[in-house]
C-alpha cells in the first residue's frame, strides 16, 4: 500500500483539477459557444442586427423619378445618389424628417474637384480639370448640372 500512496495522491490532485476545470468551464462558457464553430453563435445575430445607414440606389427611384432618370442617361450614371447626398436610410424611413445633404454652392468646387481635380495618380481615361485654371471663380453648377454634367 505504501508503495502506491504517492501515486494516489497525484491522482487525487489531477482529478480535483479536472473537476475544477469542468465546473469553471460550465459556468463561464457562453451558451451558444461552439454551436457552429469556435465562437458564440449569438455573435452572428449581433452582427446581422446592426443598423443600416445607406439605403441603396433602388430606394431613390420611386419618389425621385425625374432626377434618377436624368442621372441614368448621363456620364454620372454609375454614381449612386448617396455618393454625393450622403447616407439616406433615415430619409427613406421618414422622407419629411431627415433631409438629404446637398453640397452648397460655395462648397461645390471643393466637392466636385475631390473627384475631378487633375492628378498623375488618376486613371488616364477619367475626366479631370485643373481647378486653378478651369474658371477658378465660378461654381461648377453654373455650367455643369450635377445630374447630367456634360454640356
Amino acid at each position: 500500500m505504501k508503495d502506491i500512496e504517492h501515486l494516489l495522491r497525484v491522482a487525487v490532485i489531477f482529478l480535483a483539477s479536472i473537476t475544477v476545470f469542468l465546473v469553471v468551464r460550465a459556468v463561464v462558457k457562453p451558451e451558444s459557444y461552439g454551436k457552429i464553430g469556435r465562437y458564440r453563435a449569438e455573435a452572428l445575430d449581433d452582427s446581422k442586427a446592426l443598423p443600416v445607414r445607406y439605403a441603396g440606389q433602388k430606394e431613390c427611384g420611386p419618389c425621385h423619378k425625374a432626377q434618377v432618370k436624368e442621372k441614368a442617361g448621363s456620364s454620372h450614371s454609375g454614381v449612386s445618389c448617396e455618393s454625393c447626398h450622403g447616407a439616406l436610410a433615415a430619409h427613406v424611413a421618414a422622407p419629411k424628417g431627415a433631409k438629404p445633404a446637398k453640397p452648397a454652392e460655395a462648397e461645390m468646387r471643393r466637392f466636385c474637384l475631390r473627384c475631378h481635380e487633375a492628378s498623375v495618380s488618376k486613371p488616364a481615361k477619367f475626366p479631370v480639370q485643373d481647378g486653378t485654371k478651369h474658371n477658378p471663380d465660378m461654381a461648377c453648377g453654373m455650367c455643369h448640372k450635377p445630374h447630367a454634367p456634360k454640356i
Partner: peptide, 8 residues
C-alpha cells in the same frame, strides 16, 4: 456601403 457609394 463602400461599394454603394463608389462612383467609378
Amino acid at each position: 456601403a463602400c461599394v454603394e457609394v463608389c462612383p467609378t
